[in-house]
Amino acid sequence: MGEHYPHLRVEDLDDRLVVTLDRPEVRNAIDTAMVESLHRICAGLEHTPRPLILTGGPDIFAAGADIAQLRTRGPSDALAGINSALFHRIAALPMPTVAAVAGPAIGGGAELAYACDFRIGTDRTRFGNPEGQLGILAAAGAAWRLPELVGEQLAKEILLTGRTLNAAEALDVRLLNEVVDADALIATAHAWVDRMLRNAPLALQLAKTALRAPREAHPVLDNVVQAVLFETDEKARRMDAFLSRRRA
């Protein structure tokens, strides 16, 4: 992925991709150029599945959508789901995603973090959705994804009263999976990816698919996925290695 992505810095590694939101002058506000760049990132990861680490740098994750652009959008823009379509695509990426959230993730920035599979934070991490104060809805996933993540009552507090969660509160409800020192944030995100990549790549990918499937798809989906995995060379190799270690 040796390309230019406006408002992003991209570190293309063999087995993962690290993407940093890069609009520090406006606290990483998400504008259309950043949305388009992230769509291109998604297209690459859909074609060649790898885990994604998404961060906003050492001080902030993202302060939300770009209000100057949001102010000019009309009903057709809302129906197009400019941000919600992107965040849905990120959530549906074939391999796991980790958000490394150094500081505030507010509004659309919070919704971007909610779309990731895991969130690692620091003691400066904050999550909030103050969209109602601007006369709009948190319509890029918070209204339905947040209740799934933290429960309906807490989601109502965040969305209806403007409550902001600090790092300890977010960790307590597992909105954050781990809180670490700021200088260890990216290394910890890499460690999470390292642990996941101990799994067979196809098994990891299909496990995420199974987890995202609606309840009514199970157990038929699980059986079909298992049938696919039973036929792989990777399954035979890993099980042979396990049996050899046990006999040793």
Score class of each variant (00 low, 15 high):
I106S: 05
L202C: 11
D59G: 13
R174D: 06
R50H: 10
I90Q: 04
Q205T: 13
E36N: 13
M196I: 04
F87S: 03
R238Y: 05
V150T: 03
N199P: 00
E111Y: 12
S84E: 14
L137T: 10
E169R: 07
G103L: 02
G56H: 04
V98N: 02
A105R: 00
R145C: 07
S244I: 05
D31P: 01
P201I: 03
L8M: 05
L171C: 01
L70M: 12
L13S: 01
A167I: 01
V180I: 09
N199Y: 02
L54T: 05
M95I: 06
E131F: 13
I30N: 03
P96Q: 08
D117P: 04
L160Y: 09
V228C: 04
F127G: 01
G135Y: 09
L86F: 03
E178L: 12
A78K: 14
V150P: 02
N177C: 04
G103S: 09
A139V: 08
C116G: 01
G103V: 01
A217W: 10
A200H: 04
L171E: 07
H39F: 11
A105E: 01
N199C: 12
G121K: 12
P201M: 03
M1C: 07
P49I: 08
R163P: 04
L206G: 05
L45R: 06
A102M: 07
V224E: 15
L93F: 12
L204C: 03
R73Y: 14
H4W: 02
L204Y: 05
E178F: 11
Q69T: 00
E111A: 10
A113G: 14
R9S: 13
L149N: 04
R40I: 04
E216L: 05
R27Y: 10
A168L: 14
R73M: 15
T48E: 14
M239T: 15
D12E: 11
G103K: 00
H39V: 02
A184M: 04
T72L: 13
M196G: 08
L137D: 13
A43T: 10
A200N: 09
R16S: 00
V193Q: 08
T125N: 03
G109N: 06
E216F: 05
V220Q: 13
A140R: 10
T97S: 10
F127K: 01
R215K: 13
V101P: 05
F127V: 02
A85T: 13
Y114N: 02
M196E: 05
L154V: 09
R163F: 01
R50W: 12
L165G: 07
L211H: 12
A33G: 04
L159M: 11
A191H: 11
A139E: 15
R50F: 11
A85I: 00
A105V: 08
T122Q: 11
R119E: 02
A155P: 11
